[in-house]
C-alpha cells in the first residue's frame, strides 16, 4: 500500500450498546454510523442491504462486515468503518451476530483495519474480547493494535 491514508476508524462511528429488530435494521444502523461521520451519502445504506441479500457478509465468530455494492462506490466520500455492537445478538440468516463492522471504501484506507480484523477472528480470545467490548477505547485498541506492523506490500 503506497499511500499512508489516515486510519478510517472514527470513534464517533463506534456504538457499543445497540439493539436491532433484525439483520436489515442492524445493517441500517451500521450505515447510519457511517453517514454520521460523513463517510457516505444516504443512498449508500440501501445498497448495503441489497449487497447483503446477494451474499451474506457474516465472517464468523459473531461478526458481520456489511458494505455496499460496487456501483455504490459513487456514494462513498471517504474510506471508513463503523463498529456497532448488539449485546443481545441479531439473527443473521441463522447465525448470531454480536458485532457489525460497516465498511465504506473508495480506496484502500480500510485495508489494514480489515487485515487486523481477520487476525482477531483467527484468535478466539481476541474475537471474544471484541464481542464483549463495552469501551470505545478497547475497540480502537483491538482493531489498531498491530497496524503498524502490518506488511501490506503487494
Amino acid at each position: 500500500m503506497p499511500e499512508t491514508a489516515p486510519l478510517p476508524l472514527d470513534p464517533r462511528a463506534i456504538r457499543l450498546n445497540a439493539s436491532a429488530g433484525g439483520r436489515d435494521d442492524a445493517i441500517r444502523q451500521c450505515g447510519e454510523a457511517l453517514l454520521a461521520v460523513g463517510a457516505v451519502e444516504e443512498a449508500y445504506i440501501d445498497t448495503m442491504i441489497e449487497r447483503e441479500r446477494s451474499i451474506s457478509t457474516y465472517v464468523g465468530e459473531g461478526v458481520a462486515i456489511p458494505h455496499g455494492t460496487l456501483a455504490a462506490k459513487e456514494a462513498v466520500r471517504h474510506d471508513a468503518i463503523s463498529v456497532v455492537r448488539f449485546p443481545a445478538g441479531v439473527d443473521w440468516d441463522g447465525d448470531r451476530v454480536t458485532v457489525c463492522i460497516g465498511i465504506a471504501a473508495r480506496g484502500n484506507g480500510h485495508v489494514a483495519l480489515l487485515a487486523q480484523l481477520a487476525e482477531i477472528l483467527m484468535e478466539p480470545d481476541q474475537a471474544q474480547a471484541l464481542r464483549e467490548a463495552t469501551e470505545v477505547a478497547e475497540v480502537v485498541r483491538l482493531l489498531q493494535s498491530n497496524i503498524n506492523e502490518e506488511d501490506e506490500s503487494q
Binding site: 465472517v59 458494505h67 465498511i103 471504501a105 480500510h110 480489515l114 487485515a115 481477520a118 503487494q154
Partner: peptide, 20 residues
C-alpha cells in the same frame, strides 16, 4: 468479491501473510 471492499480484502490479507 462483489465490490472488492469487504470480505475479499480480509481474505487477501490472510493469504498474503500465509504465503509470505
Amino acid at each position: 468479491c462483489d465490490a472488492g471492499m469487504g470480505s475479499s480484502v480480509m481474505l487477501a490479507s490472510q493469504l498474503r501473510k500465509q504465503l509470505k
